[in-house]
Simulated assay, not measured.
Amino acid sequence: MSEPAEITVDVISDVACPWCFVGMKRLERAIALAGDVDVHVRWRPYQLDGAIPAEGLPRRQYMLDKFGSEERLREIHDKLVGIGEAEGIRFNFDAMQVSANTLDAHRLIRWAASPKSPPGTQPRMVKRLFEMNFEEGRDIGDRTVLVEAADEVGMDSALVEALLTSNADTDSVRAEIGTAAQMGVRGVPCFLLEGKYAVMGAQEAETLADAIRQIATAKARGELDEKPAT
């Protein structure tokens, strides 16, 4: 009897990216659609703008500077609100006051994958940070908010608070972000299957599920080659 198909999916993502929130929801559905494929998901850091100061920037002005006009910004938000509704996301852009630097959030996501954390903590943490940012308008660069998120998903909040005041894993997270750039990742989400095959963007769940099934089948047959991700 053959072993069940399995696959590892590394999601390169930023919790400041609304399309990454959509991508998370679509990945969840894709895993369900993939049937008996055993999918192991790992969340990897990326920053859309690592130059934002630690205290963040006023979001409305930041977005106007980026997109040029109120009309263009409203058009983008309206499109995302509609897409979000279809995925079970309640985007509330009007509630968002701060464009956060997400470095600390990525450190927290990294710690959520620690063997000391309960199984499944990392995806719960990613989901909670997306919700706090895009649905509740919370500042995910605020360490108090991050400690609250850690407590909600069952992490040791006192330990997280202490770690956040240190430089723990700051260099490691920045190195991972640099590695993604060296791999050619210029936008997120990016779904990296078995460390080799990249699916770029918030693809439909069916597209992701098909890619997962194909790579898992090839892996089970010993057919994966050594080509790097493109």
Rank of each mutant, 00 (worst) to 15 (best):
M1F: 11
E3C: 07
P4D: 09
E6A: 07
T8V: 15
I12G: 05
S13H: 03
D14N: 06
C17R: 00
P18M: 06
W19S: 03
F21E: 00
K25M: 08
K25F: 00
R26E: 07
R29K: 14
I31D: 02
I31H: 02
A32E: 14
L33P: 00
R42Q: 13
W43T: 05
G50M: 04
A54T: 08
P58Q: 10
R60T: 14
R60I: 09
Y62T: 10
K66L: 09
S69I: 02
E70D: 11
R72Y: 12
R72E: 15
L73I: 12
R74T: 11
H77V: 14
D78P: 07
V81T: 14
A86C: 06
A86M: 14
E87D: 14
G88E: 09
F91W: 03
D94S: 14
V98Q: 05
S99C: 15
A100V: 12
T102S: 11
L103I: 15
D104A: 13
A105V: 09
L108E: 05
A113M: 07
K116E: 15
S117P: 04
S117T: 09
P118W: 10
T121S: 13
Q122D: 07
P123T: 14
V126E: 00
L129V: 00
M132S: 05
F134G: 04
E135W: 01
E135H: 05
R138N: 04
T144V: 08
L146D: 01
A150S: 12
G154N: 10
G154E: 11
A158I: 03
E161N: 07
D169I: 09
T170F: 00
T170A: 09
T170K: 10
T170M: 04
D171A: 15
V173G: 04
R174S: 06
E176H: 08
I177Y: 03
G178A: 12
T179F: 10
V185K: 02
R186K: 12
G187L: 07
F191K: 04
G195W: 03
A198C: 08
M200P: 01
M200H: 06
Q203C: 06
Q203I: 10
I212Y: 03
R213H: 04
Q214G: 06
Q214N: 10
I215W: 06
A218R: 14
A218F: 08
L224I: 13
K227A: 14
T230P: 02
T230G: 01
